[in-house]
């Protein structure tokens, strides 16, 4: 089972999620290789080895540096064909999802997504996928090779396997015209500064159900009463209601406070992955069918505009 893992990096840092997938693949006893794409990635091969890669394919080229998927499809397609890989694994991310699906179409290969585990059952690979707001756990398989899999963020711990220096192979790629058409023209990287919500014991998070940006004061006042910090969903961050630094979820922070209070948040999978390990989850949502109730310890069906001011007042009274 020659397996290839796509390793994502940002600057000079390999992403934990993809290292976790690499370590998982190695633990299945597979012959595991990794692929690194971008400028300066040759410096990251040793680390890839220590997480279980016996070989690392390196496509090092300045034109490949912008974090765009299509040129990476070209690279991976070539590596998979030349290396005879029958399994290709990805840790989910904005970039990796688009590479995986593009590669599926290029290689006419099956892609299973949102997997939380991969096991060998009766000699075949089986993926575990929570589906329909995680109400069922589905066993999924592949009918042909290569098998492509995209794992949900945070599925595996990135623990070094103690592997040694890998064999390094340089990839010379020729890119397709359509793969080079998109260009990154600007990047606003968010450096974390100030106290991080990742350390807060209590987080009150607000979503689009707050109704308007100014209503974030409801979340802020409740957070103050509980001695906590304020978080937000991507929907409200993208809409400019609240800063990106407060965003929780797949493309934001991963938090595990003692108490997480969700106000007007539907509970999409990509939000859930950032907060599901909170100790106690309380959700207020006016839609009784909102997915967030599937993973809340206390779910309150109601209008947050009614409930939250009263709740804040009761908590403040208790304190005085």
């Amino acid at each position: 089972m020659p397996t290839l893992v796509f390793l994502e990096h940002h600057g000079s840092e390999l992403q934990k999620g993809s290292l976790g997938v690499l370590a998982k693949a190695a633990s299945l006893g597979a012959d595991v290789s990794a692929v690194l794409v971008g400028a300066g990635v040759g410096a990251l091969t040793a680390e890839a080895g220590s997480y279980g890669a016996s070989k690392v394919h390196v496509a090092e080229d300045a034109t490949l540096d912008p974090p765009l998927p299509q040129a990476r499809v070209d690279v991976l397609a070539q590596v998979v064909r030349d290396g005879g890989y029958d399994t290709v694994l990805f840790a989910n991310s904005v970039l990796a999802a688009d590479i995986a699906a593009g590669l599926a179409a290029r290689l006419d290969a099956g892609l299973n997504w949102d997997l939380v585990d991969l096991v060998e059952q009766d000699g075949r690979l089986v993926g575990k996928r929570p589906a329909l707001q995680d109400s069922v756990l589905v066993d999924v398989g592949w009918r042909s090779e290569p098998r492509l899999a995209l794992f949900r963020a945070g599925s595996f711990d990135a623990a070094p396997t103690g592997g040694g220096a890998p064999q390094v192979e340089n990839v010379a790629v020729s890119l397709e015209a359509h793969s080079q058409a998109a260009k990154v023209v600007d990047q606003q990287l968010e450096e974390s500064s100030g106290p991080s919500i990742e350390d807060a014991d209590v987080i009150v998070a607000g979503g689009r159900g707050l109704g308007s940006p100014d209503k974030f004061t409801l979340a802020e006042e409740l957070a103050r009463a509980l001695g906590g910090a304020v978080g937000a969903t991507r929907a409200v961050v993208d809409a400019g209601w609240y800063p990106y630094a407060a965003q929780i979820g797949q493309t934001g922070k991963t938090v595990s406070p003692k108490l997480y209070v969700a106000l007007g948040i539907s509970g999409a999978i990509q939000h859930k992955v950032g907060m599901q390990s909170s100790n106690v989850i309380v959700a207020i949502n006016k839609d009784a069918n909102a997915p967030i109730f599937e993973f809340s310890d206390l779910g309150v069906v109601g209008d947050l505009h009614e409930i939250v001011p009263k709740l804040t007042e009761l908590l403040n009274q208790r304190k005085s």
């Binding site: 099956g110 089986v126 999924v140 809340s296 310890d297 309150v300 069906v301 409930i307 009263k310 709740l311």
Partner: peptide
């Protein structure tokens, strides 16, 4: 090229509670 092999239940969550706001939800929280 992919297929569903079997359906199972995810690990059950503990004692989750769900209430409807009848005007006293804040106190209940």
């Amino acid at each position: 090229k992919t297929e569903v092999l079997a359906l199972g239940s995810p690990p059950a969550r503990g004692d989750a509670k769900k209430i409807e706001d009848d005007g006293n939800a804040a106190q209940a929280i």
